[in-house]
């Protein structure tokens, strides 16, 4: 191979990135060609210098903090999105479930129960009106009975406790 052809491979040779047969051919040429040897030396120097210099570059101070601040924003945004999706899904499932129940035979049963409940309420609301002023007397009497019996009960409990302590 000519010097020109060999030189195309010299950077890869310096970087140790040649397949074995190509490297052998390059090395064979280098043994007999001082020009190419000189170029290899220069490329090695250039490579060492460039690598050393560029590897010295470091990120600015506070770089990490700025990145993590932005990451925190992204994280929050993501959590909010996750929760809103969760709530939306729950709401959809709830509404869907309710609709399904209402449309099913169970729904009919629930509707009947609901109507029954309404009817009972309605009926109860007529009780005071039909009794006239007597319902007030009924409530008053039952209250007196309740209060009296509870006072009696409490006093008995207190007395029994006292007698236990004395004994």
């Amino acid at each position: 191979m000519s010097c020109h052809e060999i030189q195309m491979y010299l950077t890869a040779y310096v970087d140790d990135a040649l397949e074995i047969d190509k490297r052998n051919r390059v090395e064979q040429h280098l043994r007999q060609c001082y020009d190419c040897q000189a170029l290899v030396k220069e490329l090695q120097q250039t490579t060492a210098l460039v690598f050393e210099q560029l590897n010295r570059t470091v990120a600015p101070i506070n770089f990490e903090d700025s990145v993590m601040q932005q990451i925190a924003g992204v994280y929050q945004e993501r959590q909010v999105r996750r929760f809103s999706i969760f709530y939306l899904a729950c709401a959809l499932i709830g509404i869907g479930g309710f609709a399904a129940v209402l449309l099913s035979p169970v729904g009919t049963f629930i509707r009947v129960l609901f109507h029954l409940f309404l009817a009972v309420l309605n009926g109860l609301s007529f009780v005071p009106a039909s009794l006239g002023h007597w319902w007030m007397v009924c409530i008053l009497l039952s209250t007196i009975v309740l209060v009296g019996s509870s006072i009696f009960g409490v006093s008995r409990v207190l007395r029994s406790l006292q007698s236990e302590v004395v004994l």
């Binding site: 950077t11 310096v14 490329l43 120097q45 250039t46 460039v50």
Partner: peptide, 15 residues
Amino acid sequence: RSRLHNARMHLRQLL
């Protein structure tokens, strides 16, 4: 390979 080689040759020239 060719880009790295051309780049390295250019850098060598600059140096």
